[in-house]
Design a binder for these strands. Structure first.
Lengths: 240, 240
DNA sequence: GTCTATAAGATGATAGAC
DNA sequence: GTCTATCATCTTATAGAC
């Protein structure tokens, strides 16, 4: 890691979701609440760009302006640091997503629509992607790459996200009476792939479309994804 | 890279696609045609599992049963080796995919369907994924991860794959009269994500569905993807 | 909590013999 | 083409001072 393409990750202003507030740590208002949070922000940025093996603890320590020994003091090993980065925001995200799905199910009653369920599932991601600042963008890029990793990606994703995804699939099943479980899972696989690519914001689409579309235009990305996926779910799950 | 989860990548028997034959190197029948091909096979396997930075040239040399100096002799630098791995099969794939799209366009004439175009685009991937052996599976997993990388992924993908994707989008445009370019690109973005996740075969779906669906069931994966994406394209591109 | 110092080993790359 | 030998550097991690 010799690149110098790094602007320090400023902290997230801990906004509330449209669904419910959150607790956890003492709400120290804004800014990295301490050195360990600063280290996490820097590590999150670097890991999201170069992967676990592409970043040394020296890179992180230098960029954070502290010594490597301090990283070991806080997180034990390099892998411990990486795991702490993944864990931090995924806990927030899971609470938000579950709350969003629950709120929609409550409001819609038996009038669930496939679009509505998918929208409720995606809203927290759109929210944090747009309003969470660079830290959340780095986190999403990191998750996007973890999801593509064949060795530890599958296990990591399962550990952190399976619960909320099962809740999603349950609601989708309600919105698609008679759908077979296999079809629901396969259809979700397609949505999951699109979502993974979206949160990565790799700029791939920008280049491909010669600037016509921008990866960073999350509002459009999520609007299109909802429409695309809802039609896809119906088509896949409709077969008698 | 300390893992020992590695079975040596046996070579691909250079099959022909259903669309057209291929040339290139002297068709030395089967097996790694030489030491450099063996090195590429091993590197492909390891890189696909641990990424560029997760594998040392010593790992590759040891697994291939040669000295590290030999890798430098053939490929110059570690990055040169990585690039050679990516390039090798992408050239084959591009020829196949372009030929498949051209053949479909010729056969269908002005009776193009969205399903038909997507199917023609995906067929070569299904073919090599099923019949290409472990080498092709490793290559696909590698591409899947490259596509998720925000630093060099976008550029790498663009360099190797944009031409054939533009051809795909042109044909999709024909099959969807009146579709706006933005909508076509955004819809493709969704298909691209699903495809990326599919070729990765990470086993994520297996765990999520508790064994009901298997990532390695490529026939089903591509069948569902075609149906899902065709409906998605129509829904996204239909808005007046 | 934060630093200095340092151990113990892995890494990419090259020169040169065969 | 393939190997031996080697360099200079970077790596993670720890012990212990402040």
């Amino acid at each position: 890691m010799k690149d110098k393409d790094l602007q320090v990750a400023t902290a997230t202003p801990a906004p509330r979701t449209r669904v419910q507030g959150r607790r956890g740590r003492p709400p120290k208002s804004a800014g990295p609440s301490g050195t360990s949070e600063l280290i996490l922000d820097v590590a999150e940025d670097l890991f999201s760009k170069h992967g676990l093996h592409g970043v040394s603890i020296r890179d992180v320590a230098n960029e954070a302006g502290v010594d490597t020994a301090l990283l070991h003091y806080y997180f034990g090993t390099k892998r411990g640091l990486f795991d702490a980065v993944v864990k931090r925001r995924s806990e927030i995200l899971n609470i938000d997503r579950m709350a969003s799905l629950d709120a929609y199910a409550r409001e819609a009653g038996d009038q669930l629509t496939t679009e509505g369920v998918i929208d409720a599932f995606l809203q927290p991601l759109l929210y944090w992607g747009e309003k969470g600042g660079p830290g959340w963008k780095h986190y999403f890029a990191l998750i996007s790459q973890a999801n593509a990793n064949p060795v530890w990606g599958g296990e990591t994703m399962a550990r952190y996200f399976d619960t909320v995804i099962h809740r999603l699939i349950d609601l989708l099943k309600e919105s698609l009476p008679g759908a077979r479980d296999e079809d629901l899972y396969w259809a979700y696989h397609n949505l999951s792939g699109a979502l993974t690519l979206t949160i990565g914001e790799t700029g791939r689409l920008d280049r491909l479309s010669d600037g016509l579309c921008r990866s960073g235009d999350l509002k459009t990305a999520y609007t299109v994804m909802t429409r695309f996926a809802a039609a896809g779910f119906r088509a896949v799950c409709a077969r008698a």
